[in-house]
């Protein structure tokens, strides 16, 4: 298992809980920091959808690869990037995972084979196909997990990628986080066939729809799918989930009813898992308080780390455009 801080109390489910809480509390703090302008640009939150990132990454091996979208704080943390380095990235500091170059939408980490947050909808899918192609050509038993939203299913890149991966039998796990909306566009208003698993099946890609609010269900489905992918050929998971907050930081939420949001909040994956654990006697108030305290301390530490971080010298802004700097680079 990857991710932050190992299993708590020996029960793997407590580890999943801790991971989801880390993401939730981290992002709640980013809202505050954004409001105070310490974070800027676009900030897409995973709040409500944590079970997807945590459940799927939980099923991956350390040398598998991850490709994600701009809504990827959760995936990055669950995959093992430190909270410090992610927070520093959001604050534009050189200690950030992408040296402050990428910000919230572009987290990258070679150590965990996290090939990035892509902010062009659908843009990550072909890249994931290529990562898998390389593994296949090199005979490496690795899996590439590619996350994307329901909105991406309308892009040509989705269809082209599904077809290629299936045609060439490539080890890609396509993970569609179907939160029912692409910005303000409800799935039903964007898809002639709103059952996304059916689309994948049309490419002869085995596909399952899974309750994305249940981390245990997600992990179980992902584990099965990853095993199958490792044996050969792409699989498709549709995780049915919901974002509790706006598309990016704030939006007027004109496109959905408050009552719909409230109804989904009833299915919040964190209290849901807590309830299961409490019922099983695997979690008590003290343990939960301790986990919360530890997570809060980790968040505080990450914020302090980010705030103490340094700004990349302006004179370095032209580095990393190409391996050898081009004569045309440099400042205006």
């Amino acid at each position: 298992m990857t991710g932050g801080d190992g299993p708590a109390g020996g029960d793997h489910r407590l580890h999943l809980l801790r991971q989801m809480l880390r993401i939730r509390r981290f992002e709640e703090r980013t809202v505050e920091l954004y409001s105070a302008t310490a974070i800027r640009g676009f900030l897409h939150l995973d709040i409500g959808e944590e079970a997807c990132a945590v459940g799927v990454t939980g099923a991956l091996a350390p040398d598998d690869a991850v490709v994600a979208t701009y809504r990827e704080h959760g995936h990055a943390l669950a995959r093992g990037m430190t909270m410090r380095a992610v927070m520093a990235e959001l604050e534009g500091k050189v200690e950030g995972v992408s040296r402050g170059r990428g910000g919230s939408m572009h987290l990258f980490d070679a150590a965990t084979r996290f090939y990035g947050g892509y902010a062009i909808v659908g843009g990550g899918l072909p890249v994931a196909v290529g990562l898998a192609l390389a593994d296949k050509l090199q005979g490496l038993p690795r899996v590439t997990a590619c996350f994307f939203g329901d909105g991406a299913v309308a892009e040509g890149e989705f269809h082209e990628s599904m077809n290629l991966a299936a045609l060439w039998d490539l080890p890609v796990l396509f993970v569609c986080e179907n939160n029912l909306y692409a910005m303000g566009t409800a799935l039903a208003r964007a898809q002639s066939e709103p059952d996304l698993a059916v689309k994948a099946a049309a490419y002869r890609v085995p596909s399952w729809a899974v309750d994305g609010m249940d981390v245990l269900a997600v992990e179980e489905a992902a584990t099965r799918a990853v095993e199958a992918v490792r044996r050969g050929g792409p699989h498709f998971l549709e995780l049915r989930t919901y974002r509790f907050r706006a598309h990016s930081m704030y939006d007027p939420d004109r496109y959905r009813e408050k009552s719909e949001i409230e109804a989904w909040k009833e299915r919040d994956p964190i209290p849901a898992l807590e309830a299961v654990l409490v019922a099983d006697g695997a979690l008590d108030d003290d343990t939960l308080a301790r986990i919360e305290a530890e997570v809060a301390a980790e968040v505080d530490d990450a914020v302090a780390f980010a705030e103490a971080g340094t700004l990349e010298p302006v004179s370095d802004v032209g580095s990393h455009v190409t391996a050898t700097p081009q004569a045309d680079g440099g400042l205006p």
Binding site: A36, T37, A289, A296, V299, D300, E307, V314, S315, P332
Partner: peptide, 21 residues
Amino acid sequence: SGGGGTPAPETAAVPAPPPPT
């Protein structure tokens, strides 16, 4: 949930960018 104190929002200002050099 406990945890440490929150910095007052106004302290978390964006660092002033150095002038282009």
